[in-house]
Design a protein around this nucleic acid. Structure first.
Length: 561
RNA sequence: CGGGAUGUAGUACAGCUUGGUAGUACGCUUGCUUCGGGAGUAAGAGGUCGCAGGUUCAAAUCCUGUCAUCCCGACCA
């Protein structure tokens, strides 16, 4: 690319509407341009990077034997009605009508259509396994788009789907994809962690996320330095004592606790630790109400709770509802004589003689024990805290923030049942196909790479995804020797497969240096006065290291990258 | 969807309280001088002040509505 006659611009000032570092840098450097909240144009440089990332993924997908297809974005709503996901996606699915009033959606993800495609192939167990993928635009009406390319309404995703005859087959297909994902992210140069996650709206048996580590990340990752086990905070577990206490169980006793509605007030009043308290929260899950018990110093993981209750939507109950099931003002809920089912955190199994609300305004019970009431569900529902102990090796757990750049799901037979995707087994019996689904957000990879690779001067692309490997800065376009040398080198490098920019604009050298730094080209070759001695200056964008080389040395070095 | 903020030139902002000629910096055009880390200088071009109503002799400024963008939360593969 010769800058003097190409579409190329940079901005000197920060962009007002981009708060995130990556969004701002990508806008300033002319890679992307926002058109609406969460919708972006990919400009020439941005598209180049997108294509580099896609090429890496495509190569790794193809190596697993997966075949590429391309699905439409415009999909009749009936496909999502059949799978039940029109309702699941709720407001985040775009809905529209065509001129004859037929209902369509803009596809938020494509399990349904891939199942349809798979049906064309699958008749018997002999037709599997296989894997189809695409790189295509997805549409999700996010309640709040933000952070540049990280949370957007339209984005390019690589999604792959595996089809197997049984669970063992799915395990093999899954493993293959998983390894291809690791290779892809390694090749892009993303610093990531693999974490276990909730299956969410996708459903299924297992979900693992590839999280790019960065402070701006929206997800909290819990990890252990010692055994390298990592999970999304939503479902993270910590070491918990669930063996029954050997302490002698005392008889429960009603105590007056006037005006003490919070745990801290009650504990201060009774001169007890919060750990001796069991709080009871009233939750509404779908349309049912539950009392949720956990230790006084812990918080609820609503994801875990929803799972334990097999509920879709979950929220704290309103005051009126709390007062109805407890017969008391808010702040005095407890398990004894509560008028709704009880979910108890498993940790309470190990507790004895604890404090709870009495379901009576201004009263609590002390010396409550597990035989004093009946818990309907006992499960792990606590949200863990940094420093809690790893359940596997008992080391303190650490937290970090991440951007989900990829996700792999073992879906099992959920979608094949919904979409009637079946085959005949050896015994001539109809069985459901086992599916896996695997996604990578291309734009998120781009954003994550910028978040992880930049300095005060701009972006520093890893070589594998850089839009160009090298940029030639011509110091004086009026100097014939320099101009000729720059032109020759430009042709030489491009002919050798080293994608190169020639900055031959009528600008002062400082402007060119700043621009090449901002857009993050890994290697800069400066052609100035030293060219009279046959010397080219090579500067490494990342290390700042400068070398003076002759043409052969330069070509040789760049060829080896 | 709740709370907060902002919309003025390509970009980033000032002006609004107290209504009266549309401003600054960067960018852009032309000349001269410069030319290895965002040059200096002189002269220019560029804005229906988000949009629609209203108040007023007069509205960027006051009032009402509306749209858009951002932040915090809710939500989220």
């Amino acid at each position: 690319m010769r800058l003097s006659d190409k579409y190329f611009f940079t901005l000197r000032e920060d962009v007002k509407d981009e708060d995130s570092l990556s969004g701002n840098l990508l806008c300033k450097a002319g890679y992307i341009k926002k058109t609406s909240a969460g919708i972006y144009m990919m400009l020439p440089l941005g598209l180049k990077v997108e294509e580099k990332i896609e090429a890496i993924i495509r190569k790794n997908m193809n190596e697993t034997g997966a075949q590429e297809v391309k699905m439409p974005a415009l999909i009749a709503q009936e496909y999502y009605e059949k799978s039940g996901r029109l309702e699941n996606f709720g407001k985040s699915i775009y809905k529209l009508k065509d001129r004859s009033n037929k209902a369509f959606t803009l596809g938020p993800t494509h399990e349904e259509l891939f199942a349809v495609a798979a049906k064309m192939m699958i008749k018997s167990y002999k037709n599997m396994p296989f894997n189809l993928y695409q790189i295509q635009s997805k549409y999700r009406d996010e309640p709040r788009a933000r952070f540049g390319l990280i949370r957007v309404k339209e984005f390019v995703m690589k999604d792959a789907y595996s089809f197997d005859k049984d669970e063992a087959g799915l395990d093999v297909s899954y493993k293959k994809m998983f390894e291809a994902y690791k290779r892809s992210f390694d090749e892009m140069g993303i610093d990531y962690r693999i974490v276990k996650a909730d299956t969410g709206v996708m459903g299924g048996l297992l979900s693992e996320e590839f999280q790019a580590i960065t402070p701006i990340g929206e997800d909290t990752i819990v990890y252990c330095d010692k055994c390298h086990h990592a999970t999304n905070l939503e479902i993270a577990k910590s070491l918990k004592d669930t063996t029954p206490s050997t302490e002698e169980h005392l008889a429960k006793e009603l105590v007056h606790t006037p005006k003490a509605g919070t745990i801290k007030e009650v504990c201060d009043y009774l001169k007890k630790d919060e750990k001796a308290f069991v709080k009871t929260l009233i939750y509404r899950a779908d349309d049912k109400v539950y009392g949720v018990m956990l230790r006084g110093d812990k918080e609820v993981s609503e994801t875990k709770l929803a799972k334990a209750l097999k509920a879709n939507e979950i929220e704290l109950a309103d005051f009126a509802c709390v007062e109805e099931v407890t017969n008391a003002k808010v702040g005095f809920a407890g398990p004894i004589a509560l008028k709704c089912p009880i979910v108890m955190d498993e940790e309470i199994l190990s507790m004895a003689n604890y404090i709870t609300g009495a379901n009576k305004t201004d009263y609590h019970y002390i010396n409550v024990n597990n035989e004093d009431f009946k818990a309907d569900i006992i499960a792990d529902i606590t949200l863990i805290k940094e420093g809690d102990l790893c359940p596997y090796c008992h080391e303190p757990l650490k937290f970090t923030k991440g951007i989900e750049v990829g996700n792999t799901f073992k879906l099992g037979t959920k979608y094949s049942k919904a979409l009637d995707l079946t085959y005949l087994n050896k015994d001539n019996q109809t069985e459901y196909v086992w599916m896996g689904s695997y996604g990578i957000g291309i734009g998120r990879c781009m954003a994550a790479l910028v978040e992880q690779n930049h300095d005060e001067n701009g972006i520093i692309w890893p070589l594998s995804v850089a839009p160009y490997k090298a940029a030639i800065v011509l110091i004086s376009s009026k100097d014939e020797v320099q101009t000729k040398a720059a032109e020759e080198l430009y042709d030489l490098l491009n002919n050798n497969g080293i994608e190169t920019i020639l900055d031959d604009r009528e600008e002062r050298p400082g402007v060119k240096f700043k621009d090449m730094d901002l857009i993050g080209i890994p290697y800069r070759i400066t052609i100035g006065k030293k060219i009279n001695e046959g010397l080219y200056e090579l500067k490494d964008r990342r290390s700042g290291e400068v070398k003076e080389l002759n043409k052969n040395e330069l070509l040789d070095l760049l060829n080896r990258l």
